[in-house]
Nucleic acid binder design. Structure first.
Length: 422
RNA sequence: GGUGAGGUGGCUGAGUGGUCGAAAGCAGCGCUUUGCUAAAGCGCCGUACCCCAAACGGGUACCGAGGGUUCGAAUCCCUCCCUCACCGCCA
């Protein structure tokens, strides 16, 4: 969340940066300032009362020791006590209100993020490879059905629409991709592999900004007060929550494969054909915890690490930068990686690489000790490396052959154990 | 799930109602002594927040979390969370 001190000291700057996102957050800033001023006023009075009570209580102790009467002071302290209780309630209510307001205000876009209204204004940063030349390519649903790589109808029988059941060579290809990506990131890019819990506490979901704003998109277990993680970002970034790390151990680089659970409320009809938008999918996720000084360099290298997957698999892609109006709630800067899908005749988002700066760290109280011994918030970053179903779709569509079989890219063959599917 | 023990500062560990934000030791930082190493002595050494133009200034809160009792709670009571041990159940 945003630093209340920054809001206090430079409200106009904060408002103008938020305005580039296109929302109406200026009113929230005014509201939070009002609550903050009120809160500090009562807090000062409260602290004065507490000081009085503390002093007088000690006096009672001293007088009792010498046998002096204390009834009068006791009565006074009791009065102050009532006042304290009242003010206490007021301050903690204001505290809570302030935190709630702050949790609902999005991050400031980094100064160099291109201004824009929506996805149409996202500039292409670079692209790699070429669109494959295919005559009447089948899309992944046709291919997958024909070669029995997955079964969407039977998956719906199990869990409803929006679920996939990979089968036979499809299941094996999925697993091969996961293994391939984990090996690449751990062996060549220096990430530490994690296999975290998939169910997480509410505080974690607040820490990485899924809550409180996007609760309707999350699956939760009401009774147990746990949520199904919509991405490994949640358990992995929160791994060090409430900790003070040594500057020397930063940056920390984690890679984790997990299933991801998303309700996708309100997205019915959009990109819902086949396996492109589902309620449960697998993903390999990259997470970094860094110092503020290095986070943007680490952001570039994290993005490059994700791109490497597509390069090694020989899949055409482009990298776009999200403009201010399209930026996610907690992000200061984001690159989206889009792979080419011959079947859709479109680019599919397979990774979103973001630098959250201290937005998440402040929510989860994740800090490090700097060279001067001061505790400062870390910066957190993450990006998919990559999301499986769309990668799967782009891969089988790109490598389909005229005879209906699918070639397996060379780098993947050792993992898949064959050079084609037919 | 049951029973029992426990959760105090970076660590170890005292503290069972008053002057305790908390003894002591270790680690860390600074200074002094010393030919070097070692050792010794002295001092500093938690976090968050509030007031102040600012300070090596003043203040409040925090002893797992939240409530309660009391003039006053690390200390007493209740609820919850977590850790450990044993038992039960289980992949």
């Amino acid at each position: 969340m945003l630093d209340i001190r920054l809001i206090r000291e430079q409200p106009d700057f904060v408002k103008s940066r938020l305005a580039t996102r296109g929302g109406e957050d200026a009113a929230k800033i005014d509201e939070v300032l009002r609550v903050d001023a009120e809160r500090r006023k009562t807090e000062t009075v409260l602290q004065q009362c507490n000081a009085d009570r503390k002093r007088l209580s000690k006096e009672i102790g001293a007088k009792r020791a010498t046998g002096e009467a204390t009834e009068e002071i006791e009565a006074r302290v009791r009065e102050i006590g009532e006042e304290v209780a009242r003010l206490n309630e007021q301050t903690s209510a204001a505290d809570e209100q302030q935190r709630e307001l702050l949790l609902g205000i999005p991050n400031l876009p980094h100064a160099n993020v291109p201004a824009g209204k929506d996805a149409n204004d996202n500039p292409v940063v670079r692209s790699w490879g070429e669109k494959p030349e295919l005559k009447d390519p089948l899309d992944h649903v046709a291919l997958g059905t024909k070669l029995k790589l997955f079964d969407l109808e039977r998956a719906a029988k199990l869990s409803g629409s929006g679920f996939i059941c990979f089968t036979g060579p499809g299941a094996r290809l999925e697993r091969a991709l996961i293994q391939f990506m984990l090996d690449l990131h751990t062996r060549e890019h220096g990430y530490l592999e994690m296999s975290p819990p998939f169910l997480v506490r509410r505080e974690c979901m607040i820490g990485t900004t899924q809550l409180p704003k996007f609760e309707e998109d999350m699956y939760g277990l009401e009774e147990q007060q746990l949520f199904l993680a919509p991405t490994a970002e949640v358990p992995v970034t929160n791994y060090h929550r409430e900790e003070i790390l040594a500057a020397s151990e930063l940056p920390k680089k984690f890679v984790a494969y997990t299933p991801c659970f998303r309700r996708e409320a309100g997205s019915a009809g959009r990109e819902t054909r086949g396996i492109l938008r589902v309620h449960q999918f697998d993903k390999v996720e990259l997470v970094k915890i860094t110092t503020p000084e290095t986070s943007y360099a680490e952001h570039e290298s994290l993005t490059a690490d994700a791109e490497r997957v597509l390069q090694l698999l020989g899949l055409h892609y482009r990298l776009i930068e999200l403009c201010t109006g399209d930026l996610g709630f907690g992000s200061a800067k984001t690159y989206d990686l889009e792979v080419w899908s011959p079947g859709q005749n479109a680019y599919l988002e397979v990774s979103s690489c973001s630098n959250f700066e201290e937005f998440q760290a402040s929510r989860m109280n994740l800090r490090f000790k700097d060279a001067d011994g001061k505790n400062r918030f870390c910066h957190t970053l993450n990006g998919s490396g990559l999301a499986l179903p769309r990668l799967f779709a782009a891969l089988i569509e790109t490598y389909q052959r005229a005879d209906g079989s699918i070639a397996i890219p060379e780098k993947l063959q050792p993992y898949f154990g064959a050079d084609e599917i037919r």
